[in-house]
Simulated scan of single mutants.
Amino acid sequence: MSSSTSSTGKRIVVLGAGYAGLTAAKGAGRHHRVTLVAPEERLLHRIRQHEAAAGRGRDWPAIADLARGRTIEHRRARAVELDLAGRKVALDDGTSLGYDTLVYALGSRTAWHDVPGAAEHAHPVERATEVRRLIREAEHPGTLAVVGGGATGIELATELAEAHPDWRVRIVAAGRVGGTYSPKGRAHIRRVLDRLGVAVHENATVTEVTPDGLRTTAGPIEAGLTVWAASLEPHPLAAQAGLAVDERGRALVDDHLRSRSHPDVHVVGDAAAVTVPGVGTLRMGCATALPQGQYVGRLLDGRTAKPFSFRYVVQCLSLGRRDGLLQLVHPDDSMKPTVLTGTAGRLAKAGIVSVVLGALK
């Protein structure tokens, strides 16, 4: 019997060991044998990548430790091809896995949007340790530009500015920095950026990245080091394999998070276009990925048969080590006027991060 076969003969394969994939594998692995396919040895703790970039991160938990107590085999390989008709996954080590049920959780990656020079001269958020190394090895402090005015860009800019006050940090956004937050939330973000000396460039769409900086619709911006946090795109393997996807390449799923074109495939996390009545299509991020993974784990383990449900409660930001923002939201993710800032916001964010890690353990 293969390592992914349960006592009932069902072969469950999970692709990806992010928040969604790992929690799905752990849930299904309570009473089934699961093969978890991911090249990483340790959890890619994406909600703490800004800390790693600033040199404040530590080793994240090993996947083997997080999977302890479950019947999960971790195959350290990458999925390179899906044979949906034959129910097989080809891996980059030359082997393949058959499955009865596949959980596709390959998540998202940095989207360059065909901006000339971006892939060559900018550094994506997922390579946070590379950013840390470049800062450490620089002969002298320079200018660093963070492209992206959303949550990831804000957290990176504030963390880097606080950790490296001798560097000139800039944040560059196509619209407003923190534009999705409430007026109180945006005002606090701007106060923190000002306090940390971060130069803000708004309404500046990047048209080219060069070794020396950025060309934007608002003019050139000098930068010796550029970190790209503008947007994400789903991994392309789902669309390449023939799963039904939306215009962004996210797999279309039903209310049990099954592919609408291939119901033997569950899709969770950033890879899935999950639409919840009264809420809408969920945004990418840990806040939505973790509950989806938990749900599919329970579903495969027979602990639920109900449709997936979800409601937003808060959005939170780290603003360096001494400040933070907790933004209350309506169930559909629209903003409420209430925010927690300063130490209260920082502690709230730290508490949420602890809850995430606790859920994975």
Rank of each mutant, 00 (worst) to 15 (best):
Arg248Tyr: 13
Ala223Pro: 14
Tyr19Ser: 11
Gly285Asn: 06
Leu106Lys: 05
Val253Asn: 08
Val209Ile: 12
Gly185Ala: 05
Ser108Phe: 09
Pro331Arg: 04
Ala20Glu: 02
Gln294Trp: 00
Leu326Pro: 00
His256Asp: 05
Gly86Phe: 09
Val131Asp: 02
Ala151Pro: 12
Ala38Ser: 15
Glu139Ala: 15
Lys184Glu: 15
Ala272Trp: 12
Leu144Pro: 06
His113Ile: 04
Met1Ser: 14
Tyr19Arg: 03
Leu237Arg: 12
Val209Asp: 10
Thr158Val: 03
Gly320Asn: 01
Ala251Phe: 11
Val339Asn: 02
Thr207Glu: 15
Val37Ser: 09
Ala128Thr: 00
Pro263Trp: 10
Ala151Gln: 04
Ala273His: 01
Ala174Ser: 15
Gly302Tyr: 12
Gln49Trp: 13
Leu106Trp: 10
Gly142Thr: 05
Glu41Leu: 13
Asp194Phe: 07
Val34Asn: 02
Asp246Ile: 06
Arg258Trp: 13
Glu208Tyr: 13
Leu15Lys: 05
Trp112Leu: 08
Cys316Thr: 15
Arg298Ile: 01
Arg136Met: 00
Ala52Gln: 05
Arg260Lys: 11
Arg58Asp: 08
Ser182Gly: 12
Glu126Lys: 00
Glu162Ile: 04
Ala273Cys: 06
Asp92Thr: 07
Asp264Thr: 12
Val14Lys: 03
Asp92Glu: 04
Lys26Leu: 15
Val103Cys: 11
Ala344Tyr: 06
Gly178Ser: 08
Val268Tyr: 11
Glu202Leu: 13
Met284Thr: 10
Val356Gln: 02
Arg68Met: 14
Asp65Phe: 13
Arg87Met: 07
Thr226Arg: 01
Gly16Cys: 12
Ala24Val: 08
Ala20Pro: 02
Val37Asp: 09
Ala157Glu: 04
Arg195Gly: 05
Asn203Ile: 01
Ile135Cys: 00
Lys184Ser: 15
Val80Leu: 09
Ala272Val: 11
Met284Trp: 01
Val198Asn: 04
Ala359Cys: 10
Leu328Tyr: 15
Ala218Gln: 09
Thr226Lys: 01
Arg298His: 11
Thr226His: 01
Leu340Met: 14
His32Thr: 00
Asp212Gln: 14
Pro61Tyr: 10
Thr8Trp: 00
Gly178Leu: 01
Asp301Gly: 13
Gly320Lys: 04
Ser259His: 09
Glu137Asn: 00
Leu340Arg: 06
Lys26Tyr: 09
Ala118Gly: 11
Ser2Pro: 15
Val177Glu: 09
Leu144Val: 09
Gly320Thr: 05
Thr288Arg: 08
Gly149Leu: 07
Ile171Asp: 06
Gly27Arg: 06
Val14Met: 10
Met335Phe: 03
